[in-house]
Each structure stands twice: as C-alpha cells, then as structure tokens.
Amino acid sequence: MACRICYSVLVTGSNRGIGFELVRQLVDSPLGPVKIFAGCRDPNGPRAQELQELAQKHQDVITVVQLDIGCPASITEASKLVEAKVQDKGLNLIINNAGVNIPGSLADTGKSTMVDVYTTNVVGPMIVAKDFRPLLCKAAAQFSHQTSMSCKRSAIINVSTLLSSITMCHENFSQAPMYPYRVSKAALNMLTRCLAEDLKNDGILVMALHPGWVQTEMGGSEAPLTAAESVRGMLGVITNLTEKDTGTLLDWKGNSIPW
C-alpha cells in the first residue's frame, strides 16, 4: 500500500514559480501531505493572489503563512504558527525554496548586492532550520522505532542549483557569470552539509536539490523546463530519498552533482 509523501510540509517562497507549483502538485496528489504550510513574504499582496485562491479551495490542507526569509523575527513567528497547527506530531518536511538571483559580473557587483543575496539564500535557510528544528525533532520522534531517514519521517530540502558546483564552474561560468547567486548557493551547499552532520542523530535528513533551469520569473522564458515538469521530477526524488542521500546535492532527475 502506498504511503503519503509526509504528514506535514512547509514550503518557503510559495507564492510564485517553483514554490507555488510545489504547493499545487502536493495538494493535488492523493498521497500528498495532510497539512501544507505555504510560506510567503506578503500573503495579502497582489503577488500572492493565486496562492490565496488555491488555499481557499483547499482550506482543510493549505495554510498560508507570513514568512519573510530575510527577517528572523518573521521566521520565528511562522514557527510558532506552525507549531500551534501540528502540535505533538511536529513538522515532517521543509522545502527551503525561497531565494533570490541578482545577476552580476565582477565589475558590477558590490558589497550590498552580495550581502543581500547571501542573507536571503544562506542566512534565511539557516534560521529556518534553527527555529523549526524542535518541530522536525518531534516529527522524527514519531518514528523512533525505525532508524532510517526519509522525508516522511523528517527532512530539510534546500533548493540549490547546478551553478553552485565549484567543480563544474569552469564549464558554465561564461554562460552565467552570476557572482552573488553562484557564491551564495555554494555557501548553501556547505550549510546543507553542516546541517546533515548536525541533525543526523535526530533522524533528520538534509540534502540539496537542483530543480533544473526552469521557466519562471527567475529562470526566464528561454529555460527548457516548465515549472510543472521540474516539480514533478523534484517530488519524485524527494519521495524516494533515504539515509544514503543525506548531505548530497542531486538534480531533479535524481542525478548526483559534484560539489
């Protein structure tokens, strides 16, 4: 008998692009989560209208949560709201999808741009992991009879990119000389490895996932993948993660990407 992907999931940056598509496919799946927490910076703003409409159709499953990945106080408040909803069951899965890409060559990248992108792409996911860790631990404890890791038990998925690979930089830098984005996502990969080591004794799986080059506001119209195709692949990978995958960087097809 097939099992649910997980009981509960938090998706950050869920008002558009890959984040919105993650929520849409999760709620449409008969084996999707019972509770979906859709985090976005401005739930009442015009950019969240489509998300709010989806949530209205699935009020028993989707809770829209104000969560600004660049604001630690917002993350803390979001963790309290989620805790009130899940209580002793905890939170099974976090998909750290929220991110920003401000393209910049060496010549036109300054301190403020680097710091702003780093704050969103690295510090934000770190604070999310820190503040939601107790809820992830509660979820993992529900499966104390088994030692294996999975997203059904407790996991953090950090959305990374092929452009974060230091090994492959020489192959693709000329096509995308994005200093802030590349450097911050490489740092996110190290955060992923650190969290994987730190949380493994709690039974929490942590890995990084490259969604591919996707037709979104960030990816542009020339990208070869639709959001639906990317997310379908991502969810297939996430569903089948096991303990051997903790601390790894995989793409949306499940292929390993070198650090």
Rank of each mutant, 00 (worst) to 15 (best):
79 S>Y: 02
77 E>Y: 00
17 G>W: 03
113 T>H: 07
124 G>S: 12
108 D>L: 08
54 L>K: 02
111 K>N: 13
69 I>P: 03
145 H>V: 13
125 P>C: 06
75 I>V: 15
139 A>C: 07
54 L>G: 05
47 R>W: 00
80 K>I: 14
67 L>T: 08
55 A>Q: 08
17 G>L: 03
89 K>P: 02
126 M>K: 06
144 S>V: 05
100 V>N: 02
143 F>Y: 12
137 C>G: 07
145 H>R: 11
88 D>P: 05
41 R>S: 15
66 Q>L: 12
118 Y>R: 09
132 F>A: 11
58 H>C: 14
51 L>M: 08
144 S>T: 08
31 L>W: 00
101 N>Q: 11
101 N>I: 10
134 P>W: 01
113 T>W: 00
83 E>A: 09
105 S>V: 14
67 L>D: 02
43 P>K: 05
10 L>T: 07
138 K>W: 03
116 D>H: 07
41 R>E: 14
53 E>R: 08
120 T>Y: 02
110 G>N: 11
69 I>Y: 03
141 A>N: 12
78 A>I: 09
69 I>T: 12
29 S>D: 14
141 A>I: 12
69 I>S: 05
43 P>V: 10
92 N>S: 11
25 Q>N: 13
12 T>W: 01
83 E>F: 04
31 L>H: 11
52 Q>R: 12
115 V>D: 08
30 P>C: 09
71 C>V: 14
90 G>F: 01
122 V>F: 00
30 P>F: 04
107 A>H: 07
106 L>I: 15
31 L>N: 13
137 C>A: 14
96 N>G: 07
137 C>L: 10
82 V>I: 13
37 F>Q: 02
66 Q>F: 04
133 R>H: 11
66 Q>M: 12
58 H>A: 14
94 I>Q: 01
83 E>Q: 06
119 T>A: 07
115 V>A: 09
32 G>P: 07
45 G>L: 13
108 D>N: 14
117 V>P: 01
102 I>N: 05
82 V>A: 03
